[in-house]
């Protein structure tokens, strides 16, 4: 047990850490409720939801609506692909196959490479091949180099603890490989699969470095925000920050609720 002084120091450190972590976000959330005549900085000039309303209007510079829809759609594509591919890869990696070690290192390498360079490389490659870069093609691929290794690592950890006897028991009881996957494997790993989906979604939704040089003419939301920080001079930017944070929390909340309800339903039977 640390002494009184030690405990006090630890408390101070912890409070400082929490402030450091959430302070900036909180500042932006507070400022997004700036009054109609307020500016980008404190003091607050009244309180209003005026800037949230402005989100849905035509902007002088930038276009929230289109970039948000693009980012949401892209995040959905990335999430779906990440879930399917990492689940399949996790199952495949349970046994060694020719080249499995190399494939694994190759996958992890794309996690280690500097993200900006990955983006640059993909952008250049498209350029050399004279294919236009687009958020739904090159940026989609660039984001997968980020989410797939994460998904695979999680799946490897999950299947590491997965009792092979479950599948053998299913086979013993007459399940085909597909049925054993559907009725046994998938329900058991489902919580982790949902976790990977959430992970993939949030990673993609605010991905910046890899998308910057691969998104082509149409911006995703983070790119749009970057563009606007230099030109937009109203708290509408903060309102956007608050709204997208709320969206991320909403997605996580919905997923947790779904998990909780599935569990409750199972226990009620």
């Amino acid at each position: 047990m640390p002494g009184r002084l030690g405990r006090m120091l630890l408390t101070v450190l912890f409070v400082a850490f929490v402030l450091f972590l959430y302070g900036p976000t909180l500042t932006i959330i507070v400022l997004s409720f700036q009054g109609e005549n307020g500016g980008l900085t404190f003091p607050m000039n009244g309180v209003s939801v005026h800037w949230f309303g402005r989100l849905f209007e035509q902007q002088a510079v930038g276009d929230f609506g289109a970039s948000i829809s693009r980012s949401l759609l892209l995040a959905a594509m990335v999430t779906a692909t990440t879930v399917v591919v990492s689940l399949a890869a996790g199952m495949a990696f349970r046994r060694r196959f020719p080249g499995s070690a190399w494939l694994f290192y190759l996958t992890i390498a794309s996690l280690i490479l500097p993200s900006l360079l990955v983006g640059l490389g993909i952008g250049l490659a498209f350029n050399r091949a004279e294919i236009d870069t687009n958020w739904w093609s090159s940026a989609f691929g660039a984001q997968l180099t980020w989410t797939l290794p994460f998904g695979l690592l999680i799946m490897l950890a999950v299947f590491n603890r997965f009792d092979r006897a479950w599948e053998e028991a299913a086979r013993d009881l007459g399940a085909s490989p597909w049925k054993s996957f559907w009725h046994v494997v998938l329900p058991i790993v489902a919580p982790s699969v949902i976790g990977i989906a959430l992970f993939g979604f949030t990673l993609s939704f605010d991905e910046f470095a890899r998308t910057l040089l691969t998104a082509g003419v149409d911006n995703t939301l983070p790119l749009e925000i970057l563009g606007m920080t230099t030109t937009v001079t109203t708290p509408v930017l903060y309102a956007l920050g608050t709204a997208s944070t709320a969206l991320s929390f909403a997605v996580i909340g919905v997923a947790l609720l779904a998990l909780w309800r599935a569990k409750a339903r199972r226990e009620a039977r």
Partner: peptide, 21 residues
């Protein structure tokens, strides 16, 4: 395959499906 042999196996770990009653 196992299911067509007329055998049934009880596994050492029991291998009960944890998500089913």
């Amino acid at each position: 395959p196992p299911a067509q042999r007329g055998t049934a196996m009880m596994f050492q770990s029991y291998a009960l499906f944890p998500h089913l009653s």
